[in-house]
Nucleic acid binder design. Structure first.
Length: 423
RNA sequence: GGAGAGGUGGCCGAGCGGCCGAAGGCGCUUGCCUGCUAAGCAAGUGAGGGUUUAUACCCUCCGAGGGUUCGAAUCCCUCCCUCUCCGCCA
């Protein structure tokens, strides 16, 4: 959620931010008038309340002095005022609710570090690592590779659960498990993250605080008792500190956790329908930072490097893309997408998305810290995949495939896997 | 699922219709004191919002939402959460 105060003190910056995101500006004018109406309403009801409170204490005083007649008269007057207050409060509440419901749909302000642009074509590649391998044969897609070695089963997956599910078996199932373990090991032992095992279902207010709701309700799976399956471990990890005040010296907090993620993928009809690139349930190791405001930009660089380190250790070629303002997600002020090379598609594909959310979530979650000057301030939050496990598995399969249809196990995993080749 | 207890400031904890935004303690900040540390003494110390150049003033908040009342942390209702015991169970 954006800061209401900014709407009043610096409305142009809000306008600018919405423009950068290519948003319709009619909402902006509506917000401005609503904000004014809100303050008027507050003033009206508060001055009535002040009046009522002063009469109330006069009643108490009169009672004490046994001036019962006077007290009764004052009570009559106070009753009238009290009724007026009720009406004024009702109005204020209505305006407030309207304003809040609109505000929850306003995305975060883009960071200065995000290039201004319309869509993904304006994203800036800021880094390339590794060279895509030259194949002297036609590289297969991961689904063909998986089927050929009898380690992926899409037919039975759809029998069980419908489209966009995958079943892994044998060495690929094991590779998935080994990958999770590998990622967590790197992040906890080398990158200094604290590991969490988390609930996969959360309450509605948690989803809202995190910025997933109300705008993206279509994207989430809901249970019959109004719980939500988490779309990412970011949700429980960031919400750990909801409504908390964090000690100055405890910042930054660096958290990691592995969870499955559940997404309906509404609106992605026809996109990546084959294979396990875009599925309703996937495994992910998530990285979350909670920082002081002045450190979040630096933290994003570091978090992104932490995610990259996994790809480097696996020797998978990738590039890093700084998303333009038009392509930024709802919560993000700045985002680096890490894209891994997929030979069968002859393309880099997203495998991690690392975002600086600044105080946008901190405000919604009400997570604060006491600054050096003793002021309470909202923390900045950051999140990134470190990495999406399924897509890492795919990348390994495709990049490490051999001409005879096997998959070489990346050197760093060979010990854990116990084999040099799969298939 | 059944029975009971409870949710108060950064934390602990009192208050159970009107000088209660809330005693007391811990913590924290500042000053004094002491060779350092610790202890001791004194003062200060909740959050959000509104008005204001400012000093300052006002409103709201004691799990959430309603209700009773001139007035609610305190009384009533609903909901949520936590704990204890019992049942069921991986």
């Amino acid at each position: 959620m954006i800061d209401l105060k900014i709407l009043r003190t610096d409305p142009d910056s809000v306008k600018e931010a919405l423009k950068k995101r290519n948003m319709d500006l009619t909402i902006f004018n509506y917000l401005i008038t609503l904000e004014q109406k809100r303050r008027e309403a507050i003033n009206n009801s508060e001055s009535k309340k002040a009046e009522r409170n002063s009469i109330s204490s006069q009643i108490a005083a009169a009672r004490k002095n046994k001036e019962n007649g006077k007290a009764l008269e004052l009570q009559k007057k106070a009753k009238e005022i009290s009724n007026e207050v009720k009406i004024l409060d009702e109005e204020t509440k209505k305006i407030n609710e309207d304003l809040m419901s609109k505000l929850l749909y306003i995305p975060n302000f883009p960071s200065e570090n995000s290039p201004v642009g319309i869509d993904e074509n304006d994203n800036k590649v800021v880094k390339k690592w590794g060279e895509p391998r030259n194949f002297d044969f036609e590289p297969l897609a991961h689904w063909d590779l998986g089927l050929n070695i009898d380690s992926m089963d899409f037919e039975r997956a759809s029998k069980l659960s419908g489209s966009r599910f995958t079943i892994l078996k044998k060495q690929l199932a094991k590779l998935e498990r080994v990958l999770v373990n590998f990622m967590l090991k790197v992040h906890t032992e080398e990158n200094d993250y604290i590991e969490f095992a988390l609930p996969y279902m959360v309450k509605r207010d948690i989803m809202t605080a995190c910025g997933q709701l109300p705008k993206f309700e279509d994207e989430a799976y809901k249970t019959t008792d109004d719980m939500f399956l988490i779309p990412t471990a970011e949700v429980p990890l960031v919400s750990l500190h909801k409504n908390e005040i964090i000690e100055f010296n405890d910042l930054p907090l660096k958290y990691t956790g592995y969870t499955p993620c559940f997404r309906r993928e509404a609106g992605s009809y026809g996109k990546d329908v084959k294979g396990m690139i875009r599925v309703h349930q996937f495994d992910k190791v998530e990285l979350v930072w909670i920082t002081k405001p002045e450190n979040s930009d630096k933290a994003l660089e570091e978090l992104t490097l932490n995610a990259e380190s996994i790809l480097q250790k696996l020797n998978l070629p990738y590039r890093v893309v700084n998303l333009c303002t038009g392509d930024l997600g709802f919560n993000a002020a700045q985002t680096y997408d890490i894209e891994v090379w997929l030979p069968s598609q002859d393309k880099y594909r997203e495998i991690s998305s690392c975002s600086n959310v600044k105080d946008f979530q901190g405000r919604r979650e009400n997570i604060r810290f006491r600054d050096k000057d003793n002021e309470l301030k909202f923390v900045h939050t950051l999140n990134g995949s470190g990495l999406a496990v399924g897509r890492t598995l795919i990348a390994i399969m495709e990049n490490y495939q051999t001409e005879d249809g096997k998959i070489k196990v990346p050197e760093i995993l060979q010990n854990e896997m116990g084999v040099e080749y799969i298939g």
